[in-house]
Amino acid sequence: MNIDPRDLILDVRRLKMRFGGLIAVDDLSFGARRGEITALIGPNGAGKTTVFNCITGFYRPSEGELHLTHPDGDKFRLERLRDFKIAYRARVARTFQNIRLFAGMTALENLLVAQHNILMSASGFTLLGLISWPGYLKAEHDAIEKARFWLDRVGLLGRADDPAGALAYGQQRRLEIARALCASPVLLCLDEPAAGLNPREASELNKLLLSIRSETGISILLIEHHMRVVMEISDHVVVLDYGKKIADGSPAEIHKNPKVIAAYLGVPEEEVAL
């Protein structure tokens, strides 16, 4: 596929990740375009989550470059930034395959923690906050309003004051997405957001992701096993197998690609359409 590099929000170039003798990701190059939903798919153990961990700084890539370009033109080299700086400066937010919420804190508190850095500087690194500086109180009020907005969007406004650990599984998934969105990302990385959701919840998730894309312009990169989610919402699909890219294209192209069917799905084409 030919992509104009200026449209790319994330440009992965020759990414390689080695764990001792094991090469988890091998010479992977792909791009995610601005304002699109890019899906990263592949069989179990294909290296999808490793790619995510490289992008979000949890792993340092053995080789390769990760270029992130903000809409305003700021450029970042993700492989050179530490994990929290990727979230804070490069504004890449992520969710986790096994949900990682702050279980003992309320849904609202979870979303406020996501706005930590803004609130931290508003509170004058705690000193102004201690004396209830008006500027800090306003920033806190804004943060709560932002949290309220996203809670409403994911349908959890009624559960704002409940501890995250007490929410149902599907609600926890949505809360994690809302938390990532509260961090004001330019690129949102979702690691299997539909895992464990029932069909109704999965289609609600689709609607949510599509509306995030169209309303906020946030680009989304997602790992997904649910073919239905991938085929319905993604604009661009990258297929991995054994750490290598085997296909790259629109859902319709991927869906017809014999290599993908053989490697990833291993099933007849009709079932792919599910």
Binding site: D83, K85, A93, L101, V113, A183
Partner: peptide
């Protein structure tokens, strides 16, 4: 509660 989630949210 969760250190890894903290880092993913930009907390040093």
């Amino acid at each position: 509660e969760d250190e890894i989630a903290c880092r993913s949210l930009g907390i040093n």
